[in-house]
Design a protein around this nucleic acid. Structure first.
Lengths: 146, 146
DNA sequence: TCAAGTCATTTGCTTGTACAAGCAAATGAT
DNA sequence: ATCATTTGCTTGTACAAGCAAATGACTTGA
């Protein structure tokens, strides 16, 4: 019989935060090597996947507040990874040449991270966790919507 | 066939962070009503459960860096919820009368949060998620240890 | 045509978390 | 007994993320 990691180990509020913090701490160095934060890496991948994507759509896709997207794009623009254009009320975003190049490294780093945790837990298990967490997030977001 | 929430929905780095952020956003108001952050609420519960617990043990129990514990305890001490004593190299922490009283409310708020998400997802499912996330965290922390 | 409304984005401010460096007590080896 | 190392906590600094308010740009109605 294992003693629990903590008195809160049966609470998903606690365990999901602890898990996210811990996995993030392991993953960050993979992107930091490229001079990117994790959020910036995901942004870069989204922008290369869909050139001209709007800030609002990036906010939805990454499930981050618009202001967080703005700040991250500010920093990426300063480093000439991306540039913004203003299309009516919307801001649309494109990767510059350096950004397009760096995105390949970001995607590779992301691949390494997935290999890492699939090696640690197996692909079947991590796929199920991802699916559960994705479903859980979508359900909770419905409660926040109206 | 559902379209995925995002292109990252099969990645547990992404989904665990998104889930933790979303559930935290829903939970925070329950504790904020008491003038507590989520971390402070868990700290208070730990301190009342084990009077004289050391800062280091709190750090392990909440899976947060020692410096994070220090700052949170600073704020709780300012509000006279807890007090610290210095026992050799260790700092040990006790709840004051107001802290002991407020802890009951914190525990009740925590109960409401659990009711909320168990109602949303069922107890069976949330228990399994918590157990998976707890196991995952423990495994990942082994990789960070040495 | 232009004033009000609406929507997307940005800005100002706050908070939580972390790393790195420092300090003080404890431990251990000679 | 003394000195070097380790352990535990705190402080300085940095940054991601969020909320709330402000801005800017289309749209609509008089």
């Amino acid at each position: 019989m294992e003693s629990p990691l903590s008195p809160y180990s049966h609470c998903i509020l606690f365990t999901s935060n602890a898990f996210a913090r811990t996995l993030s701490k392991i993953s960050e160095p993979f992107f930091a090597e490229l001079g990117l934060t994790t959020t910036q890496a995901f942004l870069l991948m989204s922008i290369v996947r869909e050139p001209g994507i709007s800030a609002g759509k990036l906010s939805e896709e990454l499930i981050l507040e618009p202001s967080t997207i703005t700040r991250a794009l500010d920093k990426m623009e300063l480093k000439r990874l991306i540039y913004r254009e203003y299309s009516g009320a919307s801001t649309i975003v494109f990767a510059g040449p350096e950004g397009t190049k760096l995105e390949k490294d970001a995607a590779a780093a992301w691949g390494k991270i997935r290999l890492y945790y699939e090696g640690r837990f197996s692909k079947e298990i991590t796929d199920r966790w991802a699916s559960d967490l994705d479903f859980g997030t979508a359900s909770l977001r419905n409660d926040l919507k109206p």
